[in-house]
């Protein structure tokens, strides 16, 4: 049992449990999407005026993923940090206490959030022209307000969807901040499900698939380059399974890129002074 966080208002000293229901009703109320159909994304920038750049991402119903990203920078590094010829990009991802099913998350960052923060940083770091901003720090903060499904370590899709949303949203926020980038990063997920290992694009934890393997890719569509690749589950090389799952994920990311372009278009045109 974790120690009570001294700096926050804690609940009762006895343990509280989430409500236990009579029967788990897992009825799939909405018809399942086609394997190659993506969910609609709502992505809007500049919703957090105090930040240099910000974005809010939401998936259309019945999906419930909602997250916000805010970017500060480039701002000077503290004197304790040594000289750095490149900008240091740091990323933090946090799940709000009310964002997951099951147990309420605490405010202290746990291992999963630190791991996802590192992956987010890897996905974004190489898309930014860090050489243009020496001795600076760029800070990206992503707060996940609502996840789909549960986020414990064994539910891959829920975690991957949260990270994918975070990468796309953070990239939009970085563009909104006017930071020079090599290209925007969009994230896509594809999975091999069921006995045959048939490929599904943009699978959701709510779809109830039996996932055999899944791949998340952070992709720069303009340059056809991958900044982040994360796969879970067994994938064959000889049979071409690995390649096809990754290619499918890249396809998803490419489609998501169109949404990302729309969202940052206004900001890019304003900064660049270009008439559309």
């Amino acid at each position: 049992m974790a120690m009570a966080d001294r700096r926050r208002i804690n609940g009762p000293t006895g343990a509280t449990v989430p409500p236990v229901f009579l029967e788990q009703t897992l009825a799939l109320t909405a018809p399942r999407r086609a394997p190659d159909e993506l969910r609609k994304i709502f992505l809007k920038t500049s919703l957090t005026p105090p930040a240099t750049g910000s974005a809010f991402l939401e998936l259309s119903a019945p999906s419930t993923l909602k997250l916000t990203a805010s970017v500060y920078g480039p701002r000077p590094l503290p004197p304790s940090a040594g000289f750095s010829p490149h900008a240091r990009l740091s990323a933090e991802l946090k799940f709000a206490p009310f964002s997951t099913a099951g147990n309420r998350r605490g405010y202290v960052r746990d291992a999963l959030e630190r791991d996802l923060s590192t992956q987010l940083q890897v996905a974004l770091a190489r898309s930014v022209k860090t050489a243009t901003y020496p001795k600076s720090g760029i800070d990206v903060f992503v707060t996940v307000l609502d996840c789909e499904g549960s986020i414990d370590d064994y539910n891959t899709l829920g975690i991957m969807q949260a990270l994918a949303g975070a990468i796309t949203c953070a990239s939009a926020a970085i563009a909104d901040a006017g930071i020079e980038c090599v290209d925007l990063v969009s994230a896509g997920i594809a999975a091999a499900v069921g006995e045959q290992g048939s490929l599904v694009m943009d699978p959701s934890p709510l779809d109830g698939y039996d996932v055999k393997a899944a791949a998340l890719v952070g992709y720069m569509a303009g340059r056809d380059e991958i900044t982040l690749l994360w796969t879970k589950g067994e994938l064959n090389i000889e049979g071409g399974d690995f390649e096809s799952v990754v290619d499918k994920a890249v396809e998803v990311a490419t489609q998501i890129r169109t949404v990302l372009n729309e969202a940052v278009k206004e900001r890019v045109l304003a900064v660049g002074g270009v008439n559309s």
Binding site: T48, P50, K94, T143
Partner: peptide, 21 residues
């Protein structure tokens, strides 16, 4: 006595330049 209502406030979300995680 039972602490039945537990409010908390989180500012460390990047909401403003002074508050970080």
């Amino acid at each position: 006595t039972h602490a039945l209502v537990v409010p908390n406030l989180e500012l460390g979300t990047g909401c403003s330049r002074d508050y970080h995680p």
